[in-house]
């Protein structure tokens, strides 16, 4: 039974990806579709960050050290640090705070 779930869900997830990639060029090149395509990742990745921070397993909840790590990343971004510095600062902040408590 586990095999059925693994195969059905895996193939299903791949087909979802393929469906999104398969819009015809005539649709993809319309100016309004291009504007939507530019904004979709902004909306969904922002939502994803919010969910990773505030989803405590189906209820609103926050891990303060995780929030502090991502807060430190925002400070690094405001200071115009590089991508790698930003994600390392986030992980290090969270790890240090967890180790201390």
């Amino acid at each position: 039974m586990i095999w059925v779930a693994v195969v059905v869900a895996s193939v299903g997830c791949y087909l979802l990806k393929l469906a999104g990639m398969s819009l015809p060029a005539s649709v993809l090149e319309r100016p309004d579709v291009r504007r939507v395509a530019l904004l979709l990742p902004v909306a969904m990745l922002s939502a994803l960050v919010a969910v990773e921070l505030f989803d405590g397993g189906g209820v609103l909840g926050v891990d303060p050290w995780l929030l502090a790590g991502v807060g430190a990343a925002v400070v690094a971004l405001l200071l115009r640090q590089s991508f790698i510095v930003v994600i390392v600062v986030a992980a290090a902040t969270t790890a240090v705070l967890r180790a201390l408590t």
């Binding site: 979802l16 990806k17 469906a19 999104g20 990639m21 395509a37």
Partner: peptide, 10 residues
């Protein structure tokens, strides 16, 4: 991921 496919295809 299906939604992401739209900007990526472009």
């Amino acid at each position: 991921n299906m939604f992401y496919g739209v900007p990526i295809a472009g």
